[in-house]
């Protein structure tokens, strides 16, 4: 704990320049089992697929993020570069904020808002606009 605190104090002293941002899209299929979805994540940076990333996928409901959430799962590499697969076991249908914690070539956390139902998942539209990724 003391080591971690020391590292943090050192980290606080400097701010590295921001790396180019990664972007992600989600395509989820309902498995037929209640609230379980197989999701394909397409990760890109500067419009190009971003392979070799380690992605931890979590999700929570925006109105009560600490009560309605799922255990984070590691995504596996998919068939094509920049594609990753993860199975999400949600608690209920509705809007979820899917959190992609990226490690490897890029360190970041992306939040994607999707509506999950028996047909799959769609990006949430609020006030007629899609939230930015």
């Amino acid at each position: 704990m003391a080591k971690s605190a020391l590292f943090l104090i050192l980290a606080l002293a400097s701010l590295p320049a921001a790396a180019q941002r990664a972007q992600a899209e989600l395509e989820c299929r309902f498995t037929g089992t209640d609230f379980v979805y197989d999701c394909l994540i397409r990760l890109k940076r500067a419009g190009e697929p971003l392979p070799g990333a380690s992605i931890t996928v979590g999700a929570d409901m925006p109105s009560m993020p600490m009560a309605h959430n799922i255990r984070p799962v590691k995504a596996k590499p998919g068939k094509n570069p920049g594609e990753y697969l993860a199975r999400l076991d949600l608690e209920m249908r509705g809007e979820w904020a899917v959190k992609l914690r990226l490690a490897g070539p890029v360190k970041d956390q992306l939040i994607l808002h999707y509506d999950f139902d028996e047909k799959g998942a769609r990006p949430v539209i609020r006030s007629g606009r899609l939230p930015r990724k």
Partner: peptide, 26 residues
């Protein structure tokens, strides 16, 4: 209502989740 994204100070400073946990508890 779209919220506020990109509060990345922790990531851009290279603070790992375990170190951030230590900060919170300190």
């Amino acid at each position: 209502t779209q919220g506020f994204r990109g509060i990345r100070w922790v990531f851009e400073s290279g603070v790992e989740p375990l170190h951030y946990l230590a900060l919170i508890y300190v």
